[in-house]
Design a protein around this nucleic acid. Sequence first.
DNA 1: CCTTCATTTAACCAACGTGTTAAATGAAAT
DNA 2: ATTTCATTTAACACGTTGGTTAAATGAAGG
Lengths: 118, 118
Amino acid sequence: MADTDQLSAVFSALADPTRRAILLALAEHDATVTELTAPLSISMPAVSRHLKVLERAALISRTRSGKWRGSRLQAAPLRDAADWIDRYRRFWDSSLTRLAPVQAAERATDRIPDNREL
Amino acid sequence: MADTDQLSAVFSALADPTRRAILLALAEHDATVTELTAPLSISMPAVSRHLKVLERAALISRTRSGKWRGSRLQAAPLRDAADWIDRYRRFWDSSLTRLAPVQAAERATDRIPDNREL
DNA sequence: CCTTCATTTAACCAACGTGTTAAATGAAAT
DNA sequence: ATTTCATTTAACACGTTGGTTAAATGAAGG
């Protein structure tokens, strides 16, 4: 990560398939580390550290109740990530058919040194 | 990354603020490495490598035209990322008011060993 | 040709990420 | 008190990342 900014932390957390699997599991229901580890073919310490990453990204919260530590999905940062990505929606969605030619034209003439058809 | 799966590559690419800045610039118009480097206070080789990361994630395509190599935004992978995140939308958006209590109830009773109010 | 300009590759470095196993912690149960 | 169980921390290995500067590449232009 190297960065501490929120969005970077979130995207970085999402960049790992194991962590995405964990979030998916937590979308079903809160779970303990042991429960999360079961289907994951990695050691419990490894899962524990994935959870720490998710927690730093504020994607989960953790509760303690005696022996057990529960993890709960916190989706707010996902909203931020979705919002960021949404700024690019015009580049792929329905309007693509309508907008694409315009964009192509812009791209062909704009900013490219001497219009060398990049 | 360590992983080669597409979604991981995309999220990993997005996890760096410099690369997000590059994508934002490319949302305006295609650009050369030099143009992209100008506002970025890092060296051109560094930018060149960021571009390679974005290219591996299929977030940009590159064209060559004589001396210049242009970069163009390719938003399709962003759609995939958005789609992935969207599965969690119910956890944060409007229905949150309506759904949250249900979820809370589910969470309190579900899967947690012996209902220890995690 | 020889130079210039845009970009990439190479070599290096410090920091980080992800996994492991073994030890430590801390609450529960006997 | 001692043991047991869930989890975390420590110590280690190893590959990756992101930055640097210096050299290589490759097309354009004199």
